[in-house]
Computed example of a mutant assay.
Amino acid sequence: MHILFLGTSSFPFGMAEVEKQTLIGRSLQEQGCEVTFVCKKSFNYDSDLPYKGTVHDINYIYTSFLSRRHKNKIVNRILWSIGGIVEKLYLLFARYDCAIVNSRNYMEVKCYSFIIHLRKKKIFLTHVEDYRSMHPEADGKLLKRIDAFESLTWSKIDGVFPISEELRRQVISKNPSLPVFNIPVLVNPEDAMNAIDVDPINEDYFMFCGSSDYEKTIIQIIRGFEGTKGNIKLLLVLNGGKRSMENAVHLIKSSRFSDRVVLKSALPKTQLWGYYTRATALLIPLNFDQRDKARFPHKIGEYCASKGVIITSRWGEIPNFFTNKQNAVLLNSDDPLELSEAMKFVADNKEISNKMRLQAFELASGPFNFANHGASILNFMKGS
């Protein structure tokens, strides 16, 4: 079976959604499937890949004929327009059996659906975010796009892969007859074996890795860290736009323990894993809101694979996989004082922490291991 992946711009580079699509593709490869990523544009300024080739044994093609983002906005728009047209021609004439789409744009899904069904093939959608809660103040065109996606998408596809029970519930409420198959966070446990020790932090440290856009979470972590008052550091690995990164720097400098906070950004994956494996605890507190109820952070899988002690929240998808003080420490609120107590508990209880590390790794080698999902995903697609 030949499976196309659509809507995953910047492959093989990018954030969590690109990584998850890649791991789904690799899981299907292990079942004997041929996989091709079709990208109509790129957001990566530094890529030197040819527009067509193979990465990690996965075929890819950039229909814009360029794998990197051009610095000239006008040139970019021209390339992306070309990419969109050539992508549709590719779908019309290429050899494939079905497609997996990553998109929250109803008009895009509708177009894909029309062409793919015209070819009498199947189309599936990966669903990882509650679109409406991502934009609580949306109005005008954006609100119409959200309404269209949430109400109309589910009649255009042959099946959906939600990342959480909350998203599954939402889909079923819109189209009870649509085939649904949950795919949790995915990780390759072997990635931890490639961890390297570059620019080490020669003291114990707590660590958070995420987007600088999560201002509320960053504030909670800094305030929680201040409450530990111990001889330990806080490592923040943040990536994001100029404004949100500047705001993060301001938050750090405003802390009375700013000299104990280390900020890093744009780390190579192998170096990031090196920091994971040496951290006293890996932090990923959630907001107790609708958005975090529906999502399942990709970093959770990486934290588990690195045998980290995880501090997260008893919210959304988390309680379906984690039990307090068995394979993670679970928070019941977003109160920084509760986070402080959790951080001190981990630092002061080495024996319990070591047991939690091993239990977390069992998730990475079991339900989060990408290789364990290929057969069931393939059977679902064949049966839908």
Rank of each mutant, 00 (worst) to 15 (best):
T270F: 01
I78Y: 14
F380D: 06
T323M: 09
I284M: 15
M381S: 11
K233F: 04
A94N: 11
P50E: 07
K269I: 05
E190P: 03
M245F: 10
K122Q: 11
I82W: 08
S173W: 01
K174V: 09
A266G: 12
R169L: 07
K144S: 15
Y131D: 05
D348L: 11
L125P: 05
F43S: 12
W80Y: 15
F288H: 13
N327T: 12
E338T: 02
G374P: 06
N102S: 15
A281N: 07
Q29N: 06
C33G: 02
G53V: 02
S177K: 13
Y112I: 05
E165M: 09
N202L: 15
I74R: 04
F181W: 03
V198T: 14
S265F: 07
F37T: 01
H2L: 08
G53H: 00
G7K: 01
K325G: 08
C39L: 07
R357I: 02
L49T: 00
R145Y: 12
V329D: 02
I3K: 04
A195W: 09
N372H: 11
T277A: 14
V171A: 00
L28C: 08
V262D: 04
A279I: 10
A371T: 10
S47H: 02
G7M: 04
S164R: 01
N354H: 07
M107W: 11
E338L: 09
I58T: 00
G83P: 09
E87K: 10
R95G: 10
E341R: 12
T270A: 15
T126R: 03
C39Y: 00
T217L: 08
I123Q: 01
S10C: 05
D46Y: 08
S376M: 09
V55F: 08
S258D: 09
V128G: 12
A360K: 02
S365G: 01
P179H: 03
M193C: 14
V187P: 10
K41Q: 11
L272Q: 07
I218K: 05
S133Y: 05
R223Q: 15
L92G: 15
Q271T: 15
V75G: 02
I82Y: 06
V86S: 09
N182W: 00
G32T: 04
N72G: 03
H373L: 14
I82E: 06
E165T: 11
I221G: 06
T153E: 06
I100P: 01
Q220W: 04
K344Q: 12
P319D: 04
A99L: 10
F149M: 07
S353N: 03
G140V: 04
L282H: 11
P319V: 09
I352F: 00
L167Q: 06
A192T: 14
I252A: 04
N182R: 15
Q290P: 00
V35D: 00
D139G: 14
R256L: 11
T63G: 12
K174C: 06
P179D: 04
N372W: 00
G240K: 07
I201L: 13
Y45P: 14
C39S: 12
Y275E: 06
E362I: 00
D289H: 03
K52Q: 13
V262F: 04
L331P: 09
R314N: 15
L236V: 05
F114P: 00
